[in-house]
Design a protein around this nucleic acid. Structure first.
Lengths: 140, 140
DNA sequence: TTACTACCGTAACAATATTACATTATCGGG
DNA sequence: CCCGATAATGTAATATTGTTACGGTAGTAA
């Protein structure tokens, strides 16, 4: 947390109360959460009503800082397990329980980048999400 | 087109006017299109108002048949280049012009599947989208 | 203290997607 | 040809996700 703060200040940015709350709430969840669900939690946390925009701003900030990640296939947000390292991750998203697991993918990532560059495409962001059943839900 | 029709009937389904129009419109675009943009085009094509649900139903059908694909990162839809073959694809999505290119990814796909299975995750659908700049936009 | 930028508040609204329920069309078998 | 079953569509309302525009506040640095 303090490390996140330092990281921000170094870039002339601030780790404000709203941003901290947003991040902390996501940390506690251990599950992906939608922006509006997070909005409710934030309001409870801060004790007053907030506009959706407030959450989206906090989320944009955290995304930009690499502290969280967005699951595009579900429009949900998730803390990043390794915010410091600079690697691309893959997400295993269970369509039954809604849980998600982050998985490093060095090899996969470079393979994807190669495919892109071969086609004269300049890659910026890789989105790799696998929908399926996690161990628990598959058993049931 | 007739092949799509046959493919459907074999499954006890029909390639109706709405579905054909939807598919044809997407074929003509050569660009990803949003559901509501498609709705407007469909209304023009069929000559009367339609509910959003109508488009979503047609899209669900086409998705299920493997005739089109959805870009999760932009919520847009796109004809599939190789609807017959059973391979996973990767999409290169230009954040500048909005264009997308479908790329086969046999190797990448099996690598992703291996990562999933190693974690006792049963994969069903892979979503691989690369955001960046296409050749043309990168040059400019 | 001033100027600058990051940050937040407020309001309205745009875009995407779904639920629930009723009706119509197609098709196979009697 | 009719009947029952399933596929497909119509209609209405609503839920969910995300953005634009504009004005004010608060740190920070010259």
């Amino acid at each position: 947390m303090t490390c996140a703060d330092a990281l921000c200040r170094a870039r002339g940015l601030r780790f404000t109360a709203i941003r901290q709350s947003t991040y902390t709430l996501l940390l506690r969840q251990r599950q992906p959460v939608s922006a509006y669900r997070l909005l409710e939690m934030l309001e409870r946390d801060l004790g007053h009503k907030l506009a959706p925009l407030t959450v989206y701003r906090a989320l944009d900030f955290l995304l930009g800082s690499g502290l969280i990640h967005k699951l595009e296939s579900t429009s949900e947000f998730l803390v990043c397990d390794h915010p410091d390292e600079q690697h691309q991750s893959l997400y295993l998203v269970c369509t039954d329980c809604g849980g998600a697991e982050e998985v490093a993918m060095q090899a996969v990532s470079t393979a994807i980048e190669r495919e892109a560059r071969q086609r004269a495409f300049r890659p910026r962001r890789q989105i790799v999400e696998v929908q399926g059943l996690c161990k628990r839900c598959d058993a049931a």
